[in-house]
Design a protein around this nucleic acid. Structure first.
Lengths: 342, 342
DNA sequence: GAGATTCGAGAAAGCGATTTCTCACGACGA
DNA sequence: TCGTCGTGAGAAATCGCTTTCTCGAATCTC
């Protein structure tokens, strides 16, 4: 590591410059005042020998790495990509790098991977939407300092950054109800997904606020394929009076959109469709997809802010939830015949 | 790092077990045979004290990290995401982790970031599509062991894994010509992009093979916004006789598709559109986008294979180029009026 | 049964930096 | 002029582990 300079050590530099290793270190770190002449000689030697200090040796002394790890279930998910991007850029500003650990959706390995990743770093970011809460709690305590993403963990001493899915779904339902829809459907995400549970709570709250509204639940998933697969069920629901569909996320919505078109369903003419997350592609869909925008990179940056505080020995900062913002686009509109059922 | 066990060191374990640190190390690494009784005691002490060895200290001794870094211009690009995923999964199988360094498209910082990232790791993966070749060559030598992605660097002792864009474009043109198109357009990528240069070579070669075919060049970009922006120019080209458009990549194609629809252009009825890369969303576009499929995660795995060889002191393996595979979908079809111009 | 081997465990030497400790030296005050 | 203080540079300890070295004891051979 850092061995591109093929084993040139600080002692080599010291010898070459005719000073002690300690002086070289001083020159390197500017900790104490050192004779200008020595500075000059050391710098010359460093340049001549092509020396670059071993970060590992430094880490051993300092007890830290300036590296943090992020554990994600799937690197191909746009949400995590955005968070990773935001985190990695923000961390870089403080001289930290981010190590990624993709658990490939294998929930069983998540814990081991997290622990292992933590060993290599100063802190951890945990994205584990499927991990059972009890297990997550134990894990979070074990790998501290850690920031948890998108998992409410009441009364646990862990900073949490997340999305207010409950509120997001409510706002989305409000949008659709405002357009005149009274009979909706929600295509659910993975059963074990915590954020799906949140969304379902949002659905319940929305129902409580709109007594005249009905919301069917259609079992779905989290990927475009799931959206395609659920299309027939959505068509059935549409025949039964549903005029608007909310998909678990944009990926599902986009898959659904593609299949609905092939099934001859006009969106939004016959049926409104909305997604969640506002992935980059949402606005280029046909029709452009209405979605709830989530500040992915901002979340990553916020995660870093908390991580940095923690690493510096600071207090555990308060949970922060981002309220998704409605991006009303073409895929949702007023229903053809208002107030079909209720 | 690994300090979740709050400073429990190997000496603590040794003291607690009443043996020497060396023995603890032996038990931990199973290097030599050691008295079963000692093994038992050590393991008990480890469990009791909650000891976990410092990976940093180990790294210092061994001179390696079991970590590699991947430098990318933009983590939000689906191509790099796929490669990162493939790399990270393949590396994990060998106990390696991947550190990401997003250069945020700042070409000027790329070199410094690469060098810095390299210091932390045993090896580097370089994705630098915009870096001038001379600079890249110097950098590649400096940060070895390294694998370069998607950049042909003839006569340089560096393993390269990439995509045969030249061939890909030729195949794509063949597809369109096979459908009956004679007047095409290529929406170019960023001027400094190496893979754009490759694609342009593909265009030239295709022209050489199809004397009756014309291919316009329309300045574009690499993102969906660029695709949208270029739509009017594409429409103009269409009016001038172009019946099929190849976009630099799928992102551009998807942006273009969205805008064309709004401009009232029927794809593929009036105009065929094809992309490149076959990003996950391509098949869910409207119409489903014809594209050249690139094995993203496979590339990542292949990169790891080469990196591993290099780290192990093995030889520099041969360059490998993946030939993109045509994914013919709905967005390309025979032109309305065959053989308009030539 | 005595000397040659093996074997295994502890002592100690690194790995490559940082940082404390020590000490010589010039400057300063009395 | 003498003692003290501040400075700055080298010596040495340290970070936590691996690995070589060393040596006593057990095993083996003749």
């Amino acid at each position: 590591m850092g061995d591109r300079s093929r084993g040139v050590t600080i002692s080599d530099v010291a010898a070459h410059a005719g000073v002690s290793p300690a002086s070289v270190s001083r020159v390197l770190n500017g900790r104490a005042s050192v004779d200008p002449e020595i500075v000059r000689k050391v710098q010359a030697s460093i340049a001549t020998l092509g020396y670059s200090p071993s970060l590992v040796a430094r880490s051993l002394v300092h007890g830290r790495n300036t590296t943090v790890a992020m554990v994600v279930p799937d690197l191909e998910n746009p949400l995590f990509q955005g968070i990773l991007k935001g985190l990695s850029l923000a961390a870089a500003d403080d001289g930290y790098r981010v190590l990624v650990a993709d658990t490939a959706e294998r929930a069983d390995d998540e814990e081991a991977i997290a622990v292992e990743a933590r060993q290599r770093c100063d802190a951890l970011v945990l994205c584990a939407p499927r991990m059972p809460e009890a297990k997550l709690r134990r894990l979070a305590e074990r790998v501290a300092p850690v920031v948890v993403v998108n998992r409410p963990l009441p009364d646990l001493d862990v900073p949490i950054v997340g999305v207010d899915y409950v509120r997001g779904i409510r706002d989305l339902v409000d949008h659709l109800v405002g357009l005149g829809h009274r009979h909706l459907a929600y295509v659910t995400g993975p059963e074990t997904s915590a954020s799906n549970a949140e969304r379902l709570r949002g659905v319940d709250e929305a129902l409580a606020m709109h007594p005249s509204v009905r919301i069917e639940r259609i079992p779905g998933g989290s990927r475009p394929e799931d959206g395609e697969a659920v299309a027939p069920a959505v068509v059935d629901a549409h025949r039964a009076g549903v005029t608007a569909v909310i998909a678990f996320n944009d990926l599902v919505a986009l898959g659904l959109l593609a299949r609905l078109r092939e099934l001859g369903v006009d969106v939004p003419g016959e049926l409104s469709v909305a997604g969640f997350d506002d992935v980059p592609m949402a606005r280029y869909a046909t029709p452009r997809l209405t979605s709830m925008s989530v500040p992915r990179t901002e979340i990553g940056a916020q995660v870093w802010a908390r991580l940095r505080t923690l690493i510096g020995g600071g207090p555990i900062e308060h949970t922060v939830l981002y309220r998704p913002r409605l991006e009303a686009r073409e895929s949702t509109t007023a229903p053809a015949a208002v107030g079909a059922s209720a």
